[in-house]
């Protein structure tokens, strides 16, 4: 749905914000871009709708190469790409309904159709009763709901989000994330989001891209990355002392986390299992865990084989 090819962005001051980025966002998925401050995340997102012109490389959204379009065509293409912002970017002089109607005015939708569509949108984001309020009268979470309603007004196939929950408290963040997930499943909306909060990735993302210094370090489906030895994502989600001390075994469980694997190991192979650290997380509702242990005893080698045979990711240091 979104294809970025060999994207480079060098700002006028010489900063190389993107240094050859390739990224694909599949139709209907939620992809989260993670990375430290200054990694180039916002630049990447702003290149998708060409708010920032890449120095070189191509941007293709929904089959159209945006980087090749003229001014008028680009405007039309942008109407099909929704965007939400960290500080909401609402028009303070307009009501909630007026804000949601804004993209429709731009698209030239007649007044009577606008009213009906706005009602539908506010219903969708749960703000039907706030239609006449102005943004200053709303909470942060409500403002972001207006931002979402506005972003969806023209019926986009793609939603871009730059730190859309960073200005919100944890509970409000969860409700906004739940809304995004619902829009993703109900409308088939493809979402590309930027975040610095691991919690956002854990609760709604299908895929993730980790950026540093203008490059994508690692990208893919979360379930695939978790099953890949040495994935940076796994280390981010389950922080354990790195590198692992020699002689230790790090086991990553996905799905099997509720089975008593370790105790059966002890019984079956007559080994001692010394747990050094670990944690259990929920990824989109499914339990995933990572455990660092030292396995001692004659059956240690067989025990490792058994763990691998169960389909667990076993990394021996």
């Amino acid at each position: 749905m979104i294809e970025l090819r060999q994207l480079r962005k060098v700002y006028a001051n010489g900063v190389v914000a993107l240094d050859g980025v390739d990224l694909s966002v599949r139709e209907g998925e939620i992809l989260g871009v993670l990375g430290r401050s200054g990694a180039g995340k916002s630049t990447l997102l702003r290149c998708v709708n060409l708010l920032e012109r890449p120095t070189s490389g191509t941007v293709t959204v929904d089959g159209r190469e945006l980087s090749a379009l003229g001014r008028g065509e680009l405007r039309a293409a942008r109407q099909r790409i929704g965007m939400i912002h960290q500080h909401f970017a609402l028009l303070s002089s307009r009501t909630v309904a007026g804000n949601a109607a804004f993209p429709l005015e731009i698209a030239g939708v007649p007044r009577d159709q606008r009213a009906a569509r706005v009602r539908e949108l506010l219903e969708l984001v749960g703000l039907a009763d706030k239609a006449a309020a102005v943004p200053a009268q709303l909470s942060g979470g409500q403002k972001q709901r207006v931002g979402i309603a506005r972003a969806l007004a023209a019926g986009p196939s793609v939603l871009l989000s730059d730190e859309a929950t960073s200005a919100l408290d944890p509970a409000t963040t969860q409700s906004i994330l739940a809304l995004l997930r619902r829009l993703n499943t109900e409308l088939g909306l493809t979402i590309l989001l930027i975040t610095h909060e691991m919690q956002v990735v854990k609760s709604i993302c299908d895929s993730v891209a980790i950026m540093s210094d203008g490059r994508i370090e690692e990208a893919g489906r979360i379930t695939d990355l978790i099953a890949t030895p040495g994935a940076a994502l796994t280390r981010e989600i389950f922080p354990l002392p790195e590198p692992a001390p020699p002689g230790t075994v790090t086991v990553t469980f996905a799905g099997q986390a509720d089975e008593p694997v370790m105790s059966s190991l002890v019984r079956k192979f007559d080994v001692d299992v010394n747990v050094l650290g670990g944690s259990l997380e929920e990824l989109r509702g499914a339990p995933v865990g990572r455990l660092r242990v030292r396995i001692e005893g004659k059956g240690a080698a067989d025990a490792l084989g058994y763990l691998t045979g169960l389909g667990l990711l076993v990394e021996v240091a």
Binding site: L51, H85, I106, A154, L160
Partner: peptide
């Protein structure tokens, strides 16, 4: 910018 992103 939000307005630009909407294609205004």
């Amino acid at each position: 910018e939000a307005a630009q992103a909407m294609g205004a």
